[in-house]
Design a protein around this nucleic acid. Structure first.
Length: 520
RNA sequence: GCGGGUGUAGCUUAGUGGUAAAGCUCCAGCCUUCCAAGCUGGCUAUGAGGGUUCGAUUCCCUUCACCCGCUCCA
């Protein structure tokens, strides 16, 4: 291979608009229901996008289930996979907290454009002023409340002791028409709050051809619960012992308030989740292990270190049952930069120490025992703790596409996808330089040989530059070109996607050449 | 969900109250050959619905989608 030219560092101007356009143009990702004008929050994967997604999915599965790493205890990690139903008994989602517990009603203010959790709002009524009510966010400082009341002329009444604190949610529920007499927490105008709206992110559906409200069910909001509810079944059937993991890849559905940023936040998406069950005393060790392991995974796929961030959740954003959560975040083009020019990031994977919350919840709601009996000491029983690395497959595809997208004014296509050969949808293209002089025949023979082992393209039409350009845009790492010499020296030219450098390889060595590149 | 913006062919852009224009892509053919070359021909568009009008891509209303900001993301 000729030495690659010194990298001319082009300031990577990656624009989401261009990436989305390329995805559509080349068949990676289309707007769902495109011919009907699309549908907000849904996307379809085209031929190449499907290959890319499957490659990422298969690599995750291989790395986690088929060939898991050596654990911190020096033994290969025990891991099994499941594939559970998208629709489960609705009680699953009651136990998990997705139904009921977490669906907080929200209130919008039309004036200030702010949104509040309705249960965080407190309301003041005034005995000397009918039909005027003030609101404030609970736990606000006395000073701040007074400031607000002064602004709307209610301070005197308040200081005279005429104000009475009431619960906003129950008041509005009882008298919805009273909203027009209520001041929002930061509003100068009266009556700008909207009705409290419940935000339940689970999609509802009804089971049975004669659907009624009695048979409401939910599309799963995460794949994890399918794992938890099969924990006993797996334990009883698979000869696994704690510590071990159960993995699952599949679709999940969330009725997002506002889908945004291409496929980053969509209402239907795919997850790659693993629940690792271990003894509470070892949880910390496994948590640290998976943090490192998962970070390595994304780097091995070609995501640049400087675009990845391991971010610990602060106490305020930590769900109450978690004893620690780290997000692996990626610097997507739409994340942009802060005022100081630092990169901003979006979540790619969450690694959560969930304690034994989920198993306990299901034990309580199902009445089934989730205790694990120590095989070495039958007197020891415990509910295992769980470490959960939960990655977004859909988001992973987006990160790979964004990372690979490389504008390059020095080549005809103006851009190429720098995808690792392991994940590229096409591993190589076979291109006869001319559509005559026996070249297509040689190309076809090579194609027939390679297609047994690799996804490859055979392209005979049009001039060579156009064909290189097309392969650049879909991220094909290698092009094998048959020219006038090939019939004499039994060799082809290999053209490297990233460097455009060329070298000569014997026809008999082409498959081996690809095989080696795939391992890198 | 709120506010702002955008919507003409696969892409980038033109234009008009009266037959919707071009370049690139794509397809077919010729030519020939290492980076979107040349020649010939071809396909393809006013996001959707309604209103005003003799006539709407253009003006008005509604709606949908996308982008930006806010919000949300258990």
């Amino acid at each position: 291979m000729q030495p690659a030219k010194a990298e001319t560092t082009v300031p990577a101007t990656k624009d989401m608009k261009d990436i989305v356009a390329l995805c559509k143009r080349r068949g990676f990702i289309f707007p769902a229901s495109d011919i009907y004008g699309g549908i907000n929050g849904f996307w379809d994967f085209g031929p190449l996008g499907t290959e890319l997604k499957n490659n990422l999915r298969d690599l995750w599965w291989k790395r986690m289930v088929l060939c898991p790493p050596i654990g911190p205890d020096g033994h290969p990690v025990q891991m099994v996979g499941v594939d559970t139903a998208i629709i489960q008994n609705p009680k699953v989602w009651v136990a998990s907290g997705h139904v009921g517990g977490f669906s907080d009603p929200m209130v919008d203010c039309r004036e200030t454009k702010k949104r509040y959790r309705a249960d965080h709002l407190k309301m003041l009524s005034f005995s000397d002023k009918p039909n005027v009510y003030a609101t404030y966010i609970q736990d606000s400082e006395e000073e701040d409340i007074k400031k607000v009341l002064k602004g709307i002329g209610l301070l005197k009444s308040y200081e005279a002791g005429n104000a009475k604190a009431e619960d906003f949610v129950s008041f509005v529920a009882a008298k919805p028409e009273s909203l027009k007499f209520i001041y929002g927490p930061d509003a100068k105008e009266i009556g700008t709050l909207t009705e409290p709206k419940a935000f339940n992110l689970l999609f509802e559906t009804k089971i049975g051809a004669t659907a009624t409200d009695d048979n409401i069910a939910y599309l799963r909001g995460e794949t994890a619960q399918g794992i938890f509810i099969n924990y006993k079944n797996v334990l009883d059937s698979s000869r696994v012992k704690v510590p071990f993991g159960i993995a699952q890849i599949g679709k999940a559905f969330r009725n997002e308030v506002n889908p945004r940023n291409f496929i980053f936040r969509s209402r239907e998406f795919e997850q790659m989740e693993m629940e690792f069950f271990c003894h509470p005393d070892e949880a910390k060790m496994w948590f640290d292990f998976w943090k490192v392991e998962r970070q390595k995974f994304w780097q091995d796929l070609g995501l640049a270190k400087e675009n990845l961030l391991m971010r610990e959740h602060g106490q305020d954003e930590l769900v109450f049952y978690s004893k620690g959560t780290f997000d692996i975040e990626y610097h997507f083009p739409f994340n942009g930069f802060d005022e100081s020019g630092n990169k901003l990031f979006g979540e790619l994977e969450g690694i959560a120490y969930r304690t034994n919350y989920d198993l306990n919840q299901h034990a309580e709601h199902s009445g089934q025992k989730m205790e694990y009996m120590d095989p070495d000491d039958n007197t020891k029983r415990y509910v295992p703790h769980v470490i959960e690395p939960a990655a977004g497959l859909t988001r992973g595809v987006l990160a790979l596409l964004c990372e690979a997208y490389t504008p390059d004014p020095n080549r005809p296509s103006g851009v190429y996808l720098n995808l690792h050969p392991k994940i590229a949808p096409k591993k190589a293209a076979i291109l006869p330089l001319m559509a005559k002089e026996g070249q297509p025949e040689i190309a076809e023979k090579l194609y027939m040989e390679l297609r047994e082992e690799f996804p490859v393209d055979l392209d005979i039409k049009q001039n060579i530059g156009k064909r290189y350009a097309r392969q650049d845009e879909i991220g094909t790492p290698f092009c094998f070109t048959i020219d006038g010499e090939t019939s004499k020296d039994n060799a082809v030219t290999v053209r490297d996607r990233n460097t455009m450098a060329q070298e000569r390889v014997g026809l008999d060595n082409v498959a081996e050449f690809l095989r080696k590149k795939m391992k890198v």
